[in-house]
């Protein structure tokens, strides 16, 4: 089944066209990566899929639910991690996970919290106030929040943004593990190694258009690069 279906998606802010007729699909259980230069339209596309923004035209559905007309149903099955996400700094990490778990699961929230605490891997610091966390700790907490509910679709905008190598590696492992438990992942990233390691399929966006799509291996063969970084650079320059 299609986890995500994007058809001729256009998003304009006044005269500025942020997304210009993008179409792609993400199969259930896969990891799909959107890559592109800054301002290409990746985050806008993810925000539309996450029901935050409304498309100017085109259609987007998540597991068959329209993101505009059935936004409430979409929100029940997705989890979204924005690129520059934060958390309530006067709550402890545990209180934050507990709050989020209760929103999704009501009385059965404990299982989610347990998974969240384990995914975050913050040890005793989970009971510290979020305001005292480092950037890496905060990102781990937020990712744990996004994945602990085992959503049908996790939308992760630059999941390892601004993190050191050790934290980034842990987070990639976390994403892989959760995907193996059946969660479809749609992510964006600047890190080509990360995308190559994680994604089953990749869409390359430039100037609001999808300029290439395929598995990392397919893209390397099609565009003659030794690695994804070369493919990406060649493609973006040619556009």
């Amino acid at each position: 089944m299609e986890a995500v279906l994007v058809e001729n998606l256009v998003k304009k802010y006044g005269n500025f066209v942020a997304v210009n007729g993008i179409s792609f699909r993400v199969e259930e259980g896969r990891i799909y990566g959107l890559i592109g230069p800054n301002g290409a339209g990746k985050s806008t596309t993810l925000r539309i899929i996450a029901t935050l923004l409304k498309p100017t035209s085109g259609r987007v559905s998540v597991f068959g639910y329209d993101v505009v007309g059935e936004a409430d149903k979409v929100r029940r099955i997705i989890s979204y991690l924005p690129e520059e996400a934060g958390a309530y700094k006067h709550l402890t990490g545990y209180e934050y996970l507990e709050l989020m778990a209760k929103i999704y699961a009501g009385d059965g929230y404990r299982e989610y919290v347990e998974r969240g605490v384990e995914l975050a891997g913050l040890g005793g610091r989970i009971y510290s106030k979020i305001g005292e966390y480092s950037k890496g700790m905060l990102r781990r907490l937020l990712l744990a929040r996004a994945l602990m509910t085992l959503p049908k679709l996790a939308i992760l905008d630059e999941p390892t943004s601004g993190m050191d190598v050790v934290y980034a590696t842990e987070i990639r492992r976390m994403i892989k593990r959760i995907n193996q438990e059946g969660v479809t992942i749609l992510l964006s990233s600047h890190n080509m190694l990360e995308v190559e390691y994680l994604c089953d399929e990749i869409g390359i966006i430039s100037n609001g258009r999808l300029i290439a799509e395929g598995s990392p291996q397919e893209l390397k063969e099609r565009y003659g690069g030794e690695n994804l970084e070369e493919v990406f650079t060649n493609l973006v320059r040619s556009v």
């Binding site: 925000r47 996450a50 029901t51 935050l52 409430d72 929100r75 029940r76 997705i78 989890s79 979204y80 991690l81 924005p82 520059e84 996400a85 934060g86 958390a87 309530y88 700094k89 989020m100 929103i103 999704y104 937020l142 929040r145």
Partner: peptide, 14 residues
């Protein structure tokens, strides 16, 4: 400012 609004708006809450 603390970037919590986007997450809040994608939660399954009316």
């Amino acid at each position: 400012e603390y970037k919590t609004l986007e997450t809040l708006l994608t939660l399954p809450i009316d």
